[in-house]
Amino acid sequence: MAETLRRREFLAHGAALFSVALVPVAAATPGEVELELAGLFGDRPILPGRVTLEIPPISENGYSVPLSVEVESPMTVEDHVTRIVLFAEENPQPNIARFELGPRAGRARVQTRIRLGGSQKVRAIAELSDGSLWSTETFSIVTLAACIIQ
């Protein structure tokens, strides 16, 4: 298209102009994460603890939220973290990432940047080499930008 939108076109498409992704897409249903967890880990119990999850309590933009997750583990052949899975329950699709680790990692820590479609709870679940499951969760507020067209 030409760089300049004609007035009528602009008015007609104004609502789409900003291509805001945090838009009316249904959030995941509460049971969705539980279903995912059952698929990954069966009915093994998930205990609180061992996992530290860091996200800024307030993010000025939900498109790129820094996340750091670390699991307390010696990371030896006998005792190490095998998986870390992350969920954002209110996102349209709750999966964030599933990391696979082993004793060669040396340290059970991963950092990345994620999308949050609004203020919500983020969960991290770690699976250890003995099969035990540990988890934590943290809440993050995503503020609304001023000049967006919704």
Binding site: S64, Q93, A97, E100
Partner: peptide, 10 residues
């Protein structure tokens, strides 16, 4: 190290 990535990765 490996990671399965989903839409929520920025």
């Amino acid at each position: 190290f490996a990671g399965e990535l989903f839409r929520a990765i920025a």
